[in-house]
């Protein structure tokens, strides 16, 4: 009985993950992709649990959802700022120069 239900659980989990992964790779909106990636990390941790690897699941939950997610979100903000043509704080070429006359970034 338990085996049957767990198999059903696996099938739904795998189908949801495939669906998620398809949209994640297919979407044009980067922010949407990041949120889908965070959700995918959470489901991947569940999948590792079902594969009887709780230690990998712990690492996946901590790294995939907890660390890469915020990292991507921060990177997204920085990317937007660069795209808008503002001076990037981390580029050494512009430091000390007037941002308007300095070399333009593309």
């Amino acid at each position: 009985m338990n085996y049957f239900i767990l198999t059903l659980f696996d099938i739904i989990l795998v189908l949801t993950m495939l669906w998620l992964a398809w949209y994640l790779l297919n979407t044009e909106d980067i922010f949407k992709a990041v949120v889908l990636f965070i959700s995918f990390g959470l489901l991947m941790a569940l999948a590792w649990v079902r594969m009887r690897a709780p230690d990998v699941a712990l690492a996946e939950a901590a790294l995939g959802a907890g660390l890469t997610g915020p990292l991507f979100l921060s990177a997204l903000r920085r990317m937007n700022r660069t795209r808008k043509g503002e001076r990037r704080l981390d580029s050494d070429e512009n430091r000390g120069k007037d941002p308007k006359t300095g070399p333009k970034q593309e």
Binding site: A45, A61, A62, G66, G69, P70
Partner: peptide, 20 residues
Amino acid sequence: IALVFALLAALATMTFVRRT
């Protein structure tokens, strides 16, 4: 693992609100 989930899901939301 549930404990880690509970802690880190909030972290993503807070980064989103503060930074993005």
